[in-house]
């Protein structure tokens, strides 16, 4: 299967996993649109929750969202009104990324063989942008491939009147 087709299939898996997560543990409304390729210079965000995967294919699944939405999601998950962007909120967004990536990984493994996930990483700030620093052909520390020059396949979502995106970077590993 061509990498582009494979990415589109994975984007559908991401949408399905996100729907399930919002229906079971976040309990917020969710709308979504079709995924499209987005250049890294167009990405501006407050919070990035990302999980890398390695195996026959390697890459990153990352959730890009505002601090306001991160607070709403964490509050719903914990059934508590959180107003400060604390470690607990970062932890919740890490788990959101982990649950989405974990479900996608199960499907990827069934189709393409064993794939390993990394522990989730959450980066938070204001108006963060992702900038290419190099274009290493194979990234052993796959987390760093977040800063790739390749475009992200980005699926746009809306929840609680807030937009957020889930992006996918994917490459075939060296044989």
């Amino acid at each position: 299967m061509a990498l582009e087709n494979m990415m589109e299939t994975i984007a559908l898996d991401i949408t399905e996993a996100t729907k399930t997560l919002f229906e079971t543990m976040i309990l917020m409304d969710l709308k979504y649109d079709e995924a499209s390729l987005v250049d890294d210079t167009q990405i501006k965000t407050d919070v990035i929750g990302m999980v890398s995967f390695v195996g026959k294919y390697h890459g990153v699944i990352a959730v890009f969202l505002s601090q306001r939405l991160a607070l709403k999601i964490a509050s719903n998950m914990l059934m508590a009104e959180l107003t400060q962007f604390t470690t607990e909120v970062k932890d919740a967004i890490g788990e959101v990324s982990n649950m989405i990536a974990g479900n996608v990984k199960t499907k990827l493994t069934a189709r393409h063989g064993e794939i390993q996930l990394t522990i989730p990483i959450v980066i938070a700030g204001e108006g963060l942008s992702i900038t290419a620093v190099n274009n290493s052909p194979i990234v052993n520390d796959a987390s760093l491939s977040c800063f790739s020059k390749d475009p992200w396949l980005m699926t746009p979502f809306v929840s609680g009147n807030e937009k957020f995106n889930i992006g996918l970077l994917l490459k075939e590993s060296n044989k």
């Binding site: 543990m25 998950m77 914990l78 607990e88 932890d91 919740a92 890490g94 788990e95 982990n98 522990i119």
Partner: peptide
């Protein structure tokens, strides 16, 4: 669980 949030949930 390594997530304190998940332990709480």
């Amino acid at each position: 669980d390594d997530s304190a949030v998940m332990r709480k949930i």
